[in-house]
Write a protein that binds this DNA or RNA. Structure first.
Length: 138
DNA sequence: GCCAACGTTGGC
DNA sequence: GCCAACGTTGGC
């Protein structure tokens, strides 16, 4: 299983909104960046991801699971753009802020730190485990 | 609200 | 195919 990080501005699509979708999940639409799209193409159903609030909050607030493989983004006619569906799995008991992540030497290579503008990012297993630990999971 | 970093576009 | 101009993102 692979791990990912999905970034969203809470004004546009928040963790609370995501949770209201429940098991049905929601397509992660609106991505208009090739790197981010390619990351979604590489996803498999069952992969896990962090749900990160950018701008407002700036923290990992929850865990999502990929529940549908990559498909056309229905919010555009442009065939280039595709997305996966994700569903909320659980809250971070304690949100892990960007400051917390930057302060942790183990996480200094995270894409979130290195390339803060990429909206869908890969996360290594070591990074996943560490952020979960910081957030009070397991 | 500012601005640096980055990605995309389009003229040549 | 290069690169300047432009637009967007997101941390501060």
């Amino acid at each position: 299983m692979a791990y990912w990080l999905f970034k969203s501005e809470p004004d546009a699509w928040s963790w609370d909104q995501q949770k209201t979708k429940g098991e049905a999940g929601q397509q992660w639409d609106g991505v208009r960046n090739y790197q981010a799209r390619n990351n979604m193409r590489a996803m498999a159903v069952g992969d896990r991801g962090f749900f990160y609030h950018s701008n407002e909050g700036k923290a990992v607030v929850g865990i999502v699971e990929v529940c549908a493989a990559v498909h056309r983004d229905t919010t555009t006619d442009d065939e280039r753009w595709e997305c996966v569906d994700v569903k909320a799995v659980e809250d971070m008991p304690k949100p892990v802020s960007l400051d917390d992540i930057k302060a942790n030497p183990k996480l200094s290579e995270m894409v979130l730190v290195k390339n803060s503008r990429l909206s869908v990012q890969p996360v290594t297993e070591a990074e996943w485990t560490e952020v979960c630990r910081m957030g009070g999971l397991r």
